[in-house]
C-alpha cells in the first residue's frame, strides 16, 4: 500500500538514521509536507505511516473536511483533507499526494497532504513561537514556526535557509 521511498526510510531504525546525521543539540525530528502553497511539519513521533492515497470511500453527511474512510490492513480509518481542514483551496489528490497516518486524539487518522518533502531535525533555536511571527491571532493548531538552517557536511550551521515551516499541533488540529 505504501512502498514509497520515504516510508521505507522511515521504517529503518531511528538510531541508524540518527547516526548518519550530525549529533549536537537537543534536536527533534519533524516530517515536512506541503498543502497548497504552504509548508508544514509535524513531530515525526506522531506519524505512523505514509501511504499513497488508497481509494477513499466518501461518507455522506460527514463534516466537510472529512474526505472519507479507507481500510488500512483491515482497520477502518477516517481520512481528513488538510487543505479543507485549514480552509485552503481544495483540489483532488494528485500523483504526489500522500496520506499520513497520525495518532489523533482518540483514534488513528489519515491526513491527506499534497506532498511529503523531508525529515527535519530541528533544535529549539530553530523554532520560533508562532505569536511572535504571526501575531496573537494565530490558530491554536500552530505550535510554532520552524526555520531550519543549512548545514555543512559536519553539521556546522552555514546560514539561515529560505524555508519556513508551520509546525502543527496535531492534537489541536484534529480536535473537532
Amino acid at each position: 500500500m505504501s512502498g514509497g521511498k520515504l516510508s521505507r526510510e522511515l521504517s529503518t531504525p531511528r538510531a541508524s538514521r540518527a547516526r548518519a546525521l550530525p549529533s549536537g543539540e537537543d534536536r527533534e525530528e519533524y516530517l515536512g509536507f506541503r498543502a497548497d502553497k504552504e509548508m508544514f511539519a509535524v513531530s515525526l513521533a506522531l506519524v505512523r505511516e505514509i501511504l499513497k492515497p488508497p481509494p477513499i470511500t466518501e461518507v455522506p453527511r460527514a463534516r466537510r473536511d472529512i474526505l472519507g474512510i479507507v481500510s488500512v490492513r483491515g482497520q477502518i480509518t477516517t481520512v481528513i483533507d488538510l487543505r479543507r481542514r485549514l480552509n485552503l483551496r481544495a483540489t483532488d489528490p494528485t500523483i504526489s499526494s500522500r496520506v499520513l497516518l497520525v495518532q489523533g486524539n482518540d483514534e488513528v487518522l489519515g491526513l491527506l497532504v499534497d506532498e511529503v518533502t523531508q525529515v527535519y531535525r530541528l533544535s529549539p533555536l530553530e523554532i520560533e513561537p508562532a505569536t511572535s511571527v504571526l501575531g496573537a491571532n494565530v490558530g491554536s493548531h500552530v505550535a510554532g514556526i520552524g526555520r531550519p538552517r543549512m548545514r555543512g557536511l559536519r553539521g556546522e550551521v552555514q546560514n539561515a535557509s529560505e524555508e519556513v515551516l508551520i509546525l502543527l499541533d496535531l492534537a489541536a488540529l484534529l480536535s473537532s
Partner: peptide
C-alpha cells in the same frame, strides 16, 4: 467494522 469516533455523529 465500526466507524471511528470522528464519524460517530453521522
Amino acid at each position: 467494522k465500526a466507524l471511528g469516533p470522528s464519524l460517530s455523529s453521522v
